[in-house]
């Protein structure tokens, strides 16, 4: 279950509304968990949980926007659908700027609500895939020796083998050996492909080794 199952986390201090929403979402086949407050959510939900959050904008103590910020700080990247009693423009703007998937009213029609939740889950799916890919890339790059990393940086900066050899104070032949070794380890066949993957993995050519 963990990791792969998407859970819709409903956070609302209004128990009746949370129950009704959970009921409806379950009827639509979603996996649902309800939380009576933002602090409950933060205490109970681990960072790598999959799914999305349906969050009441106006709650006592820690409101929706505060939870959004707390989640961002804690590295929670679950997409958020905000629910609001009334279309309060300033909080809507803040919520969207904070990366909310959507802000919809509590009286919005079912379709709008479900569509927003599905979009949020799709984004979570996409983010998860991306995370898996990046993690895999990181693993591939992680096998490189420190010298290979140095060579990789200089390659990404577009230096020729001769320049790299001079800069690192080694023989040009050795540079070639390092390049062959690192492309094999990363599993690419061209410099272009290497550059693409390095970028995806978060490597930047101007970064120092």
């Amino acid at each position: 279950m963990t990791g792969s199952t998407q859970i819709v986390h409903v956070v609302d201090d209004d128990a009746s509304f949370a129950r009704a929403l959970a009921r409806q979402l379950r009827a639509h086949g979603f996996e649902v968990q309800t939380f009576a407050s933002a602090t409950d959510f933060l205490a109970q939900v681990p960072r790598d949980t999959r799914g999305c959050v349906v969050l009441d904008l106006a709650m006592p103590v820690l409101d929706g926007l505060a939870l959004q910020e707390a989640m961002a700080r804690a590295g929670h990247c679950l997409p958020i659908v905000f629910l609001t009693g009334h279309g309060d423009i300033p909080s809507t703007v803040r919520a969207m700027r904070g990366g909310a998937e959507d802000v919809i009213t509590k009286l919005a029609p079912e379709e709008a609500l479900l569509a927003a939740i599905r979009r949020a889950l799709a984004r979570d799916e996409h983010q998860a895939e991306l995370r898996v890919r990046v993690r895999a890339l990181h693993e591939r790059f992680a096998g490189l020796t420190p010298r290979e990393v140095q060579v990789l940086h200089l390659v990404l900066q577009g230096r020729l083998n001769k320049q790299i050899a001079w800069e690192l104070g080694i023989h040009e032949r050795t540079v070639k050996l390092h390049r062959t070794s690192l492309t094999t380890k990363v599993g690419v066949s061209s410099v272009a492909e290497l550059a693409q993957l390095a970028h995806e993995a978060g490597w930047h050519p101007d970064e120092a080794g």
Binding site: D14, A20, T84, G85, T105, K106
Partner: peptide
């Protein structure tokens, strides 16, 4: 008002 009305709608 939106709390109870929303709950009614969802139910």
């Amino acid at each position: 008002l939106s709390q109870p009305l929303g709950a009614i709608l969802r139910n």
